[in-house]
């Protein structure tokens, strides 16, 4: 094989991307592309896993067996999403356990929405409807991401997400149409989750330092603000339909653009939560760390058993 210099490799790489040819694990790729993907996919994986905690909180207290079975299936799906994504990270040569340890030491981030508490059953509705709804907005374009394993993982994830959103919407709309107490419960939950949900798309485009490069590499296909707008435009009419009030007195519909315009987003709150000062940051990371530590002996025992059996079968 003839020697090619790095500039030429980079040119060919970008040419593949421009022609919508997927990049697969053992293909040549710029180190920065690899590192960006490792960071993004592992943080996405952490979000799926940490995201199980706020909902896991209500599994034993679901109001009836149907709701309990549904919530259990939903949370189980999130575990699966985490696994698809950790597997995709491994194809990039990253050490999965090291990325998990980065979560536990606070070096790696996850979606800040999961640092809010789930204080009422209605929150199971708000999460499915708004949080999974926002996640779908984010994830659908990643199905066309330039990195094959990430794109394929997203296709599986997106297939499973729509049930998540529908079961949440079913919970919240039923409450919203219930007794005055139930309706108040739905509204109170909606008030708490609306702003954090629209912050899930990340900082405004002007403040998002990685966006331009990620768009050029087709890791990202839409900007944060574009996705946020799409989410707001579809969600506001849904809220109105079920009789909930958007907790934003400045919200208005702009007839000329055809888009809703919200009041100012409290980015200070967003950055505080990202920095670790949200209501549940410590609780969430502690729970993950404890799960890993408490499960260590099980993982070791399973491995010891497998090795013993291998020796026995060989003799």
């Amino acid at each position: 094989m003839k020697e090619v210099n790095i500039t030429e490799l980079e040119r060919r790489f970008q040419e593949k991307i421009d022609n919508d040819i997927k990049i697969e694990p053992r293909d040549w790729m710029p180190e920065e592309y690899r590192q960006t993907l490792i960071r993004q996919i592992s943080q996405h994986a952490h979000s799926e896993i940490v995201g199980m905690l706020p909902e896991g909180n209500w599994i034993t207290r679901a109001p009836n067996l149907r709701r309990k079975a549904v919530l259990l299936a939903k949370v189980q799906d999130e575990a699966g999403h985490g696994l698809y994504l950790y597997s995709a990270v491994e194809t990039l040569g990253a050490d999965r356990e090291a990325t998990i340890d980065d979560l536990h030491t606070g070096k790696a981030k996850y979606s800040s929405i999961f640092n809010y508490p789930t204080t009422s059953w209605a929150d199971m509705g708000s999460i499915g409807w708004l949080v999974d709804g926002a996640a779908i907005m984010n994830q659908v374009p990643i199905c066309r991401c330039s990195y094959g394993p990430y794109a394929r993982a997203m296709v599986r994830v997106c297939k499973e997400e729509s049930f998540h959103q529908r079961q949440g919407f079913e919970i919240i709309s039923l409450l919203a149409q219930g007794t005055p107490e139930q309706k108040a419960m739905a509204q109170e939950s909606f008030n708490r989750f609306w702003w954090p949900a629209i912050m899930m798309f990340g900082p405004n485009d002007a403040d998002s330092k990685h966006t331009a490069q990620s768009m050029k590499w087709k890791i990202k296909r839409n900007t944060n603000d574009e996705l946020r707008q799409m989410f707001i435009d579809v969600t506001v009419p849904q809220a109105e339909m079920i009789g909930l009030t958007i907790p934003d007195k400045d919200l208005k519909f702009n007839k000329e653009t055809g888009h809703y315009e919200t009041g100012p987003i409290d980015w200070d709150e967003f950055w505080e939560v990202v920095k670790g000062n949200g209501p549940c940051n410590k609780e969430r990371v502690d729970a993950r760390r404890k799960a890993k530590e408490d499960g260590l002996w099980v993982r070791e025992a399973a491995m010891a058993y497998a090795e013993k059996r291998k020796v026995k079968n060989a003799s």
Partner: peptide
């Protein structure tokens, strides 16, 4: 369809079923 980690082949099949 993808990959996973497991201590042995039986656990790999069981986990593959679940995932």
């Amino acid at each position: 369809v993808g990959s996973l980690r497991a201590s042995d082949e039986q656990m790999a099949v069981d986990n593959a079923r679940d995932v």
